[in-house]
Design a binder for these strands. Structure first.
Length: 270
DNA sequence: TTTATTTGACCAAC
DNA sequence: GTTGGTCAAATAAA
C-alpha cells in the first residue's frame, strides 16, 4: 500500500475517522452545556477537517473509476454553498445529450414483481435487440425536487409460468422518502458480480421495502459516526462515495484493524 | 389543473 | 450504421 504523505493511508484513514468520532462525542457533551458555542464551533471545524482528510485519503487510494474530483469533494464539503445554486440551474434542452452508462455501480434483481417500495417514474421504453420484451426505464420520482439520481431498468425475462422481471438499478437514492431496507451484507443477500452487484433477494422480506441496497452499508457506517440521525445529505455523501470501497473495507480483515483502534464499537449492518 | 405515461426524436457509444 | 439511454411533447388519468 502506498504511503500517504509518509503515512500508511489505511492507518491514516482509520485515524482520521476515529478522531472525527472522538470530536463528535466531545461536541455532544459540549452541547449539553450552556455558553460553550465557541468551543463547539472549534469542534465542528475539527470534525469537518477529519472527515475531509478521510475523504482525501480514500480518494487517493487509486480506484480511478470511483475517485472523486476535487470539485466533487468540495461540493460535499460545502453543503450550503453550491448545491442550492445548482438546484436552480435552468433547464435546457438536453434531448439525446447523455453518456451511455457503464455497468459499474449497478446491481440487479430478479423477482415476480416490479414493486420495490420506491417511488419511480417511467421515462422511456425501448425495444431491445434479440429480446422478446421491451425494456422500461424508470427514474426516481424525486429526481428534480431532491436531485435523486437513482434509476432502474426493468425487463420481463419470462412470462410462464409466472412473470419474472429483471431489474437493473443504477445509482443510490438520495431522496428523503427512501426507506432503508433490512438487507444486509452479512446475510449474503448481495453477490458481487463483476463490476456490478447482483442482488439475490429474499422476496418475501423484500416486498414493500426499498431496495437501495448499497446505501445500507453507507447509512449505517455514517450513522455510527454521526451523533444524531443522518440527513439525506449524509447518506448522499456516503452513497456517492463509492460503496464498493466500503464493501472492500468491511468484508475484509480491515474490520479487525478498526477494532484494534479500540474506539469503534461494533459496526452493525441493520 | 396537476401528475404520470407513452412515444418518437435525438445522439453518444459501439 | 446500429443500438440503447434520455428527453420532452403529446396524451391520458386522477
Amino acid at each position: 500500500m502506498e504511503d500517504f504523505l509518509g503515512e500508511n493511508p489505511h492507518n491514516r484513514l482509520i485515524k482520521e475517522l476515529i478522531e472525527g468520532k472522538s470530536f463528535t462525542v466531545q461536541l455532544q457533551t459540549l452541547l449539553k452545556q450552556p455558553n460553550e458555542s465557541v468551543l463547539a464551533e472549534e469542534l465542528i471545524r475539527k470534525i469537518w477537517g477529519s472527515f475531509t482528510q478521510a475523504i482525501t485519503v480514500l480518494n487517493s487510494l487509486g480506484n480511478s473509476d470511483n475517485s472523486l474530483t476535487q470539485g466533487q469533494i468540495e461540493e460535499v464539503d460545502q453543503p450550503n454553498s453550491g448545491s442550492e445554486m445548482k438546484k436552480k440551474k435552468e433547464k435546457q434542452d438536453r434531448r439525446g445529450c447523455y453518456k451511455r452508462r457503464k455497468t459499474s455501480g449497478s446491481w440487479m434483481r430478479e423477482s415476480e414483481t416490479m414493486n420495490d417500495g420506491c417511488a419511480w417514474r417511467k421515462y422511456g421504453q425501448k425495444k431491445i435487440l434479440n429480446s422478446k420484451y421491451p425494456r422500461c426505464y424508470y427514474r426516481c420520482t424525486h429526481k428534480y425536487d431532491q436531485e435523486c439520481r437513482a434509476t432502474k431498468q426493468v425487463q420481463i425475462i419470462q412470462e410462464n409460468p409466472i412473470i419474472m422481471y429483471h431489474t437493473t438499478y443504477f445509482g443510490n437514492h438520495t431522496c428523503n422518502s427512501t426507506k432503508i431496507p433490512k438487507h444486509t451484507y452479512n446475510n449474503h443477500s448481495m453477490v458481487k458480480h463483476s463490476d456490478s452487484t447482483v442482488l439475490k433477494e429474499e422476496e418475501e422480506e423484500f416486498k414493500g421495502q426499498s431496495d437501495n441496497a448499497s446505501s445500507i452499508v453507507d447509512s449505517n457506517l455514517w450513522q455510527d459516526f454521526m451523533p444524531s440521525s443522518p440527513s439525506a445529505h449524509d447518506s448522499t455523501l456516503a452513497a456517492n462515495y463509492n460503496y464498493s470501497y466500503y464493501e472492500e473495507i468491511i468484508s475484509s480483515h480491515d474490520m479487525e484493524d478498526l477494532a484494534k483502534f479500540g474506539e469503534i464499537e461494533a459496526i452493525e449492518f441493520c
